[in-house]
Design a protein around this nucleic acid. Structure first.
Lengths: 138, 138
DNA sequence: TTTTATGCAAATCGTTTGCATCAGG
DNA sequence: CCTGATGCAAACGATTTGCATAAAA
């Protein structure tokens, strides 16, 4: 039998593949429970604990991103590339924003403090999305 | 009897005053439980529920700032002025950083998305603090 | 006297863990 | 075989809530 595929040092068991794969198709920045439900459609016996453990493993390996919003549980995405999150204060919808200039903040912080190796680990923006801003009926 | 003092629309009961006051003296960005312990030294009968409720009330009124770090419980500060947080990846210590140029991110995001009223609600930076970077013995 | 805040304890929610079993090397 | 991964259920930590009492308007 061929050995399990490996990515970033983690052995991709069948359940890990399904979790990674499923998350890859979701564009809603789901929380663990939502990932669990989506994954269950493809693999009805997978346990919640495995989904939690797997998300942690994949996060440690850098294969998925885990982040917190101001309230609510942790959320996940498998979107490649540096990006930040913009949440609608009215409906809660979360979208990705690419902001290359955010790296600039890290450099500025290094100048102001004595910290080294500074990374911009999370930027959370809030605003009002087009749907919520539009008068409801037109 | 004179009426209770009011700040930003909230009636400052004795326990709310103590919570606000105590948090004002703490520079460690404490979590709710730590605020609770500190407050108890001044008011031994205050309940944990009241501290939680009060922190929520003060946060809604804009009198204290509540934020989440990548892991761990919510943290609080009463530091005035726009600032962000820089956490040491090694020891977890958290310091304030003033980054006026962060507002720039909000403007850029508004250009890139169709969202309106964008605010930079949280920037979380991580790095290595001077103590942790220094060779321990000399 | 009507409303709002408090204290206490129980409940809830998200997440983690112990342990026996199973798949992979 | 030996190690690591899984499923299940119980445990856990942080936060919220129901309810009776106390304080303020």
């Amino acid at each position: 039998m061929s050995p399990l595929p490996v990515a970033n040092g983690v052995r991709l068991t069948r359940q890990r593949q399904v979790v990674l794969d499923t998350l890859g198709t979701m564009r809603t920045h789901p929380e663990a429970m939502q990932v669990f439900h989506a994954v269950r459609e493809r693999m009805p016996n997978i346990s919640l604990a495995t989904v939690y453990r797997t998300l942690g493993v994949l996060r440690d390996a850098g294969l998925v991103r885990e982040f917190v919003t101001h309230d609510g549980p942790r959320r996940y995405d498998a979107t490649p590339g540096e990006h930040f999150h913009l949440a609608c204060r009215s409906c809660g919808r979360l979208v990705d924003v690419e902001l290359p200039e955010a790296a600039f903040l890290g450099r500025r912080a290094a100048e102001v403090t004595l910290f080294s190796d500074i990374e911009v680990s999370q930027v959370e923006l809030t605003g009002i999305c087009p749907e919520c801003a539009a008068p409801s009926g037109g």
